[in-house]
């Protein structure tokens, strides 16, 4: 995973609430068996709306997306995160995110920044004309106009993002602890630990 510490540049001033994963990447794009090439299908229906920010050349290649409440609600498809990455977005700023989406974003090195609605409103305004900067180390979002918004992030996620750490590798290092759990529950909860097919 690519380490991430700072994201600076143009931001799509989208602002819409409840952007679901079917909008981020419609199901007919999910028939892939690799992670690449989904950027074309990213926000497909929005890109067809007149005056949308995603086909506006002023924002082409922007690394940041600013959205409304509950971004990424809906399905668990990780393709939503892959599609945003493939479109070049590495940071999404919104008042809130769906739990599954923020997990998927994190696991793919996309930084999700939750800020209060008034901060979002200000950033949406600034982003129309000017760039925005996110500093993960100091947990700040800044604009060229002295705006400075602090955001919260889970310390473990911050550590992994800053260092580009692979979660599976980290957990595999705890193999002995997992085996001990399995030995314990094999005794106490055999019905969960060892599923057996008794009848067809």
């Amino acid at each position: 995973m690519t380490p991430i510490s700072q994201v600076s540049g143009k931001a799509y001033p989208f602002g819409r609430k409840n952007v679901d994963t079917d909008v981020i990447i419609p199901a007919h794009w999910l028939k892939t068996v690799t992670r690449d090439g989904l950027g074309k299908g990213c926000l497909e229906s929005v890109k067809k709306e007149p005056g949308n920010v995603f086909t506006d050349p002023a924002f082409a290649g922007a690394p940041i997306l600013i959205a409304g409440d509950n971004f990424g609600c809906g399905s668990s498809r990780e393709h939503a995160a892959w599609a945003l990455l493939d479109m070049g977005v590495t940071c999404v700023i919104a008042p809130s995110f769906s739990d599954i989406f923020s997990g998927n974003a994190f696991k793919n090195g996309i930084l999700t920044v939750a800020l209060p609605q008034d901060a979002i409103d200000r950033l949406l305004e600034v982003a129309k004309t000017d760039p925005i900067s996110i500093d993960l180390e100091h947990q700040t979002v800044t604009t060229p106009f002295q705006d400075r918004f602090l955001f919260e992030i889970d310390p473990f996620r911050k550590h992994c993002l800053l260092n580009g750490l692979d979660e599976v590798g980290l957990t595999l290092a705890q193999d002995a602890t997992i085996s001990a759990y399995e030995a314990r529950t094999g005794e106490t909860m055999p019905f969960l630990a060892h599923p057996t097919r008794h009848t067809a």
Partner: peptide, 22 residues
């Protein structure tokens, strides 16, 4: 609960997930 593909990989390899209590 539903999980993304990275978590699918995590569960396959480790039979666990890293979670915060809801």
């Amino acid at each position: 609960f539903g999980i993304g593909t990275s978590e699918v990989e995590h569960v396959m390899a480790t039979q666990t997930l890293l979670l915060k209590q809801s």
